[in-house]
Design a protein around this nucleic acid. Structure first.
Lengths: 191, 191
DNA sequence: GTTGTTATGGACCGTTCGGTCTATTATAGG
DNA sequence: CCTATAATAGACCGAACGGTCCATAACAAC
């Protein structure tokens, strides 16, 4: 029988995800990747096919395990304002401590509309972010029935834009206080 | 005497700016650049020193001639709401028609905080964008005195975040209608 | 222990990268 | 027309890129 695999594929993907998130696709060399993943070049190509294919895999992985909407349970009994404020704070932290923010946002900038596969994943990721905000708002309004559906959809979209605005501004090294101010003010209209 | 220069330096810089805006720094090869600039490699290095130095020059050029705040005169007799809506629409157009949005935003994502020179330029560019919004708001409120200064500063910051949020979302190929909706809703509180 | 199978390290590949250098061309002043 | 000077085209460079390949190492089944 065969020699067993000596690394955990999922772990390797997660390490690659770290690198891509911090350095972007073009900014991450194969050397950077295999060092972070702690595997050999052969294993890399054997397992993942190419840098590009790995990138698509990490995008999917990001969606499944790291995108903010994976951590949100809209049925939690917390106010929308609190939940959304935390989401923003989490994003700011993620950028400031060097993790790299939302990979979909980074990809939107790096690839713009040059790659169909990536555009598809990015667009759907952003839609899900918007949907998450929508769910949070809907849940909180359940017993109030204050806002009509249209309005909620609009606010959800606003929040998505604010989310990515924060991502850019945090990347530009603005100070945490200003960023938090934007975050808290964006949710001031709620509850 | 010497053979005279056969290209216009400023024009060449503007062409380089186009390329960098669309493709990013790492995404723009020397070949891409000299082809767009229509000069030879020798002239390139003779005139600009290196790809990196040229990039810093184009960042300065963007700030001087293409950044949105260069087109705004806050003393114009137009409502803040109208001016700001136009700014957002202009940004959306710039991204959708392939010009590439605000270079500072793109740089914030591509370089994060990895290059001191670039971070300095980017941060100051974003600050100026915020200042522009502030001026527009101040001017419009001049005769109203409705909002205290603190509030205006905060709104200016919100608008800056929305601006960059739109930039990411436009890059992600969201449709124009949704983007315009975000733009118009962001200014709904004004006037 | 032998065998069959597969993971692995690392040599190797062509291409492209940013950048240098030289030979040539063009031209304004004498 | 000659000469000094500067702009240019393109050959050339080493390094790094993404990617291939093969000899070897490791291990499960027998």
């Amino acid at each position: 029988m065969a020699r067993p695999i000596q690394f955990d594929k999922q772990t390797a993907i997660d390490q690659a995800l770290c690198v891509f998130r911090k350095q972007g696709y073009k900014g991450s060399s194969l050397h950077d990747l295999i060092r972070a993943m702690n595997i050999s070049k052969s294993s890399f190509y054997e397992t993942f096919g190419s840098k590009y294919e790995l990138f698509l895999i990490t995008l999917a992985r990001f969606h499944e395990t790291e995108a903010v909407y994976q951590f949100i349970n809209p049925t939690d009994n917390i106010s929308a304002k609190t939940v959304i404020t935390n989401i923003f704070k989490q994003l700011i932290d993620s950028v400031i401590n060097g993790k790299g923010g939302c990979l979909f946002g980074n990809c939107a900038v790096e690839f713009s509309d040059t790659d169909a596969n990536i555009t598809t994943l990015v667009t759907s990721g952003i839609k899900q972010l918007e949907h998450m905000f929508y769910q949070i708002l809907i849940h909180d309004q359940k017993n109030k029935a204050v806002l009509e559906k249209h309005k909620i959809q609009t606010i959800a979209r606003q929040l998505t834009a604010t989310f990515y605005g924060l991502q850019i501004m945090a990347n530009a090294n603005l100070n945490r206080k200003e960023l938090n101010e934007i975050a808290s003010n964006s949710v001031a209209i709620l509850d």
